[in-house]
Design a protein around this nucleic acid. Structure first.
Lengths: 146, 146
DNA sequence: GAATGTGTAACTCTTTCAGTTGCACACCAT
DNA sequence: ATGGTGTGCAACTGAAAGAGTTACACATTC
């Protein structure tokens, strides 16, 4: 396993915030979200912090306060979640520079960087097809609890 | 950085094997490949081993022996390299299971698994557009040494 | 049989990540 | 204003993954 699970955690949290809102519970605390994740409130805040910067969620501070979606769930795509979290993609170049006097060693990095940029682009396009609302509806319908 | 650099190392090695072959040096040893990578022969063998299983490269053992492409460089795609190396994708679900009695916690994993499978598919399609020969020609032409 | 080369397991070192603790700050109610 | 509730963030811990390295067994050529 070569990736972190922040994207999964973030999507889970957003779906949960939306579901809670549909049930009239909004805003919702990090504590409540952490319960569903079987995790800790600090992790929830850590993951949600960049989403707050991106305007995907809004947060209040006092008692009875907590997290709320920054806009309607129909207009939050997984692409926005992904880019808010991952400035760099899941692809890594060499751990250290290869020999620059070798023709391959000299050109492989920029060449692969182009390939990786194309991969990021098609991934982003695919992620943009899914919204939080769509994903939540899908999982509630396709994988009902019980 | 959330990914390993094995894919980069493998593509680098394959390009180098092909370039050496074009220059009449074939097969080529792990030692020679490791030089260009500024790495170690053992790492080269570790990365190339699964490619050998997939038939992308062939290897001999005695003196004057080493690595050779398993088929022509025009017919080895980056997709094959990727799938030979990464049985699991770069996307991770939760570190541990979420609460199954929560509707979101119950359905989020299978739902996101579907999304990740779609992402793998579009990535594979994009990677299939590139071959070792094409990549090598491109980097030699676009990024000439000196 | 000696030299060359791969195969692989085991180890170290570093980095990264999830998990955790602690404390400062903000907000609301009384 | 005061105490309870909640987020913000820095720092620490423990576990896991990965690159790099060593060592040794095995295969092939001469």
């Amino acid at each position: 396993m070569s990736a972190n699970s922040q994207f999964t955690t973030a999507v889970h949290a957003l779906c949960w915030i939306e579901l809670a809102a549909r049930q009239g519970e909004s805003p919702i605390t990090s504590e409540r979200i952490a319960e569903s994740l079987a995790s800790h409130p600090v992790l929830v805040r850590r993951v949600l912090a960049p989403l707050r910067e991106a305007g995907l969620v809004a947060v209040g501070r006092g008692p009875g306060s907590g997290w709320r979606l920054g806009r309607s769930a129909e207009r939050i795509t997984l692409r926005e979640v992904y880019t808010a979290l991952a400035p760099g993609g899941p692809f890594a170049l060499h751990a250290h520079d290869p020999k620059p006097d070798c023709p391959v060693g000299h050109g492989i990095r920029p060449a692969l960087t182009e390939v990786f940029a194309d991969l990021e682009a098609v991934m982003a396009r695919e992620l943009a097809r899914h919204t939080i609302a769509g994903l939540l509806d899908h999982l509630l319908r396709t994988y009902p609890v019980g």
